[in-house]
Write a protein that binds this DNA or RNA. Sequence first.
RNA 1: GGAAAGGUAGCUCAGCCGGUUAGAGCACGGCACUCAUAAUGCCGGGGUCGAGGGUUCGAGUCCCUCCCUUUCCA
Length: 693
Amino acid sequence: MPRKILVTSALPYANGPLHFGHIIEAVQTDVWVRYQRMRGHDCLYVCAEDAHGTPIMIKAKAEGTTPEALIARVAAEHRADYEGFLIGHDHFHSTHTPETQYFTNLMYERLRDAGYMTRRSVRQAYDEQAAMFLPDRFVRGTCPRCKTADQYGDSCENCGATYTPADLVDPVSTVSGTRPVWRDSEHIFFALGRFEPMLREWLASGSLQPAVQAKLAEWFEAGLQDWDISRDAPYFGFEVPDAPGKYFYVWFDAPIGYLGSFKALAAKRGLDVDAYLKPDSTAEMYHFIGKDISYFHTLFWPAVLHGAGFRRPTAVFVHGFLTVNGAKMSKSRGSFITARRYLQRLPPEPLRYYFAAKLGPGVDDIDLSLEDFTARVNSDIVGKLVNIASRCAGFIERGGGRLAAQLPDPALYAEFSGAAERIGAAFEGRDYSGAIRDIMLLADKANQYVDQHKPWTLAKDPAKADEVRAVATQGINMFRALITYLAPVLPAMAAAAGRFLGAPVGRWDDVQSPLLGTALERYEPLAVRLDPKVVATLIEAPAEAPPAKPTGAAQATKVTKVAEAAGAAAPKAAAAGASPAAPERIRIDDFTKLDLRVAKVLAAAAVEGSDKLLQLTLDLGSERRNVFSGIRSAYRPEDLVGRFVVMIANLEPRKMRFGVSEGMVLCASARDDAGGIFLLSADAGVQPGMKVS
RNA sequence: GGAAAGGUAGCUCAGCCGGUUAGAGCACGGCACUCAUAAUGCCGGGGUCGAGGGUUCGAGUCCCUCCCUUUCCA
């Protein structure tokens, strides 16, 4: 009996491009959906543009356009990127639509009438010049705990402290640059705490992964707070029906956007919305999300649904974060890879395969290692999988173009067809990495089979033509089983394979009856190898020397990391094998010979008669030093005054043409300074003269 | 600061409820083969399973402490 399933992945926000973090989630969802469809289930996949909120409003203003125009433009880009990665949404909508507004108002009114909405006054930062209340992220200032400058209004990136904008030292509005004032305003709150028993029961039903359950337990422990779902005008969103000048907070209507998108789809296809959304619905509803938004999806969302008389999600599937080459995606490291950047260089399926090969059912983070990506795809897909078809196709073609009437080794084929349930269960349970391990083991087995039976040797004896065809038929059928199992991951390749086989690859159960006696089409290569040189260009070399942007965590990096970051300027050169002579090892006492000190730049000036040098006057706490430094190409003297640098304080003074240099300032750079020169410095709070060790 | 996940061969990872000489793929070395996109097959080298304690007849697998990495925190 086919299941009725509604699936969503998280809504991309309409103020930036899709990046690999979005793509891995879309791939995870899409693979699951395609698998369900291959099993004959009625599985719908909807998504939408998350269109509301202050950031959209401000970005539109900055671009001199309207939020609607901005959303339309970004949504079109997002849609194209999703399509580029073969993400098969049944419908891609927007939250700024009548459908979403309909559900938003309906839910609000029902929750209000049931007594779950309360009002009370809130004191909030207000920008008098821009005439608007400021979200926490739009107030910046100095962390009250560690004194790091220029931190967001809700938490410190450096020390991790959490606080409110009012706690900041020297708060500044990022909208106008002025100092905010504090004003009171009435807000609407959703009484989340009253749903605790329901939520506990819901989570006990086994809808969530163990790690997510643990997180929820922690939140229950801390106590569920009322949730402020309103914002003051000006705000881009839906106005609250019974509160003029108040708008629904973007996070209130974002998940409702799932239902809005579904409603639009239902209208298009004549589906019964109620059958999916009523409290006792037998349809299943799943949300694929990243772990950062599990609070909204595992607490607010089920509570809002339940309180408003709708069904709750069957389950929420939470995945971990994507890291690139072992570290968080970062713009400054160039590892912030957009969907567009990838698609301009490479086809989508290798990445779908690689993500699938690494995705498990848990919330663990997933690392994209570019070298591993290339090796894995070339070896698994081209070397193993496609090779089976490629090496067998010729024998069939030369032998008349038709498959044999029966399999020479039914027992071996049974191993392949018998894996269907095991591999299917892995897909169902989102253990794609397990499924792919299984599939590749079978691919090895298929290649071994061909090797053992040596059709190329048999083919030399015309009397053995039937035997040759039989072996190739066995091989082709094993290939067919494997590409069927991989079809959720590689839909385009599966379609191409279907054309070659003369029988579409579409249903999971097709594998149970081998393809016999039928004609094959001419074999065309189903995949090409990835060029490591092209793959390496996914990582962007940092463009120019960063214009003095030294704040917070970015600056707290260890010296080794800085060196690495600079090394990345020559993209992957080191990884490509150009290993520079490894430096000799030293002992700790060699290191302690260095007297590294933090110094403050008191004065800086270009040196007359030199293209490279700046003359620095440094405060070492107890003394001042005069140092010449070859950083003129990367720093303007006036930008340096007041900042902290690291210097070698016990370097032999050196007489130069322009004077005596009494030390050396530490910088990171590529060997030829090609990617720029980067001064090392210390976090806020450091004092001149402090020793570095 | 709180929390979660992870630390197993050069790389990416698998090792279920503790039990024979710790596995796979890639990479590397050798051999074979030539049907296949220098693809494939066979053989081989390579691991003090992060560190230190503990429980046990026996621990990569359980407990404690510490170190490191990544990530999350309405």
